[in-house]
Amino acid sequence: MSRQPYMPIALVVVGLALLPLGLTSNTVLNFLAFAMIITLAAQGWNILGGYGGQFSFGHAVFFGTGAYAMALLQVRFGINPWLALPLAMALGAGVGFAIGYLSFRARLRGSYFALVTLAFAEVFRISANAWGFTGGAAGVLVPLRIGAEHMQFADKRLAYWLALTFVAATLALTHALSRSRFGAHLVAVRENEEAARALGVDALAVKLKAITLSGAITASAGCLYTQKFLYLDANLAYGPWISVEALLAPIIGGLGTVFGPLVGAVVLLGLGEVTKTAFANLTGGAIPGVDLVVFGVLLILCVAYAPRGVLGLAQGWLGRLKGARP
């Protein structure tokens, strides 16, 4: 494993890439693509929250910025989506840096930082809802132009593979980060900021780098969301739903681990879908928000019984299995 550190990532990605060859229903493909988008948003959150210990309740601000930038750059400026995507990510990074600079320089930590990020997300949501440039409450519609050059795919598998490519890149990036000096500094800041400073860690710079990177990654999730649904309004882009899913997935999957956000996103969305369908079959009609109840229950179970998430739980079981063998 030490000689082939990227092997597990490669195996998981290849496994995920092969899924659409067996599962061809539109529902499954939509689910998979959406799960990848959430994974991406959650991986961004995980770098800042899981590795850096700075819990944001407002990652919608990055997701929405990415999504709106992607849509508006195309609609208002006629920029090709392949070019708009890196620009939107850069904008997400910029917003991350700005929020980080304001809050970390003011030494906001813990719940204070969480509340400030929540407030930023709300300010962005309300502004996007009011401002004519962003389409106001009516939202913004990206014209349908099927074709790879417009990043719109007739074959749903292609959209999924594109999202998977991003997920693969962030898995590799997170792995590299966790073994780098920056990663060690980030974890040290999470564990004990004072002690980290005594060891020569520039805590402010480390946190700023983390939130900038986090903003860019979560913005990329917003970009893919825009290209998949071709419609945005303020509640979709900057709504609390994405902030919640971006933080729940890593917590349920495993905080500060490479695969945590992926596992968490699949478990979270999978159970959400199953519950929605089950309730719809039982009661004869869909109950909006029933999946949120499941998310809440999952979070409580996780905090109480699996503080290291599903991955931590699995590791514990594997360890006991190995230990039980003679």
């Binding site: 060690a184 500094h185 974890v187 040290a188 564990e191 004072e194 002690a195 980290a196 060891l199 020569g200």
Partner: peptide, 17 residues
Amino acid sequence: QPFAGLSVRENIAVGAF
């Protein structure tokens, strides 16, 4: 002020970095 979530080696490595 140990980094309680890390191993002893990882703790010292933060300094060594």
